[in-house]
Design a protein around this nucleic acid. Structure first.
Lengths: 140, 140
DNA sequence: CTAATCTCTACAGTGACTGTAGCTTCAAGG
DNA sequence: CCTTGAAGCTACAGTCACTGTAGAGATTAG
């Protein structure tokens, strides 16, 4: 069971060294024991915690949400309702974001398709940007 | 035609007053004339420029991209190639983002669907977050 | 023992705003 | 003309989640 330096931990979790120190500072990673010279030494449990955090971040959870999820992990007997609520909220966010981006994609495609690739004066891309009224979708 | 205060301009463009001052500071909005007492007074051309910026921002263009697009507007005889390139790059970004979010949505749905809503100890949501290996998609 | 690599702290910078404090100016009503 | 309340002014701090830098000290392989 490991006795990693911060660099080894970073490599193992595909993170940057600074990010780990930042996580320690904001309290989502623990303040671990130090060598005589003051360098951090991590164990395998710390790697698991960091992997959890990174994975949740990759899924777009905020640090605050992760803080709650980490807190839940420490109370295994508790109902997981709160975890479900957080994941559910994240799903709703993602679905909204997708809908918005799809409208945006359509708009950009339309813009690009109608451009005749001539002079700026008659460029549809510039024109559409200048006049919201020419947008197909009112959404944004 | 117009002789707006900053508040009226903000209302007309559905922006905040501070945002307009920020745009002035970073040089995408002009430093306009002031009243004797030092308050900004805008004309209709300024509203058009602000609307252009806001619309482009709503479509997700960065301020740097917008700076270039605004520069192009001032050279109507120039080819609009650069504008097309910027819009094309934005479209590619949006498509990538959508693909990533769709993978994410699938992941979150799977997580939530397999949770039995019991104790934290056997919660699939927590479990999947802890172990990346349980993800269906390797993408992220 | 030395040289190369790593790690340390502390702080500044990113993007695109947003919010706050403590003032001054403006416009409308009396 | 005067007051009052809303709106404007500057300057700066805060947001989020890192990322980068400087200048020092620690560790490790040869």
């Amino acid at each position: 069971m490991g006795d990693f330096s911060i660099g080894q931990l970073a490599a193992a979790a595909e993170t940057k060294v600074q990010t780990i120190r930042y996580y320690e500072e904001i309290g989502v990673m623990p303040r671990v024991a130090r060598t005589g010279g003051g360098q951090r030494r991590y164990a395998s449990g710390d790697l698991k915690r960091l992997a959890f955090i990174r994975h949740a971040r990759d899924l777009g959870f905020s640090i605050e949400a992760i803080r709650t999820l980490l807190g839940l992990q420490d109370r295994p007997d508790h109902s997981c309702e709160a975890a479900d609520a957080i994941a559910g909220a994240r799903l709703a966010e993602v679905e909204q974001r997708i809908a918005k981006l799809e409208a945006l994609r359509a708009e950009l495609k339309r813009m690009l398709a109608s451009c005749r690739h001539g002079k700026v004066a008659e460029c549809r891309v510039i024109e559409v940007l200048a006049d919201h009224g020419q947008c197909a979708h009112e959404a944004h």
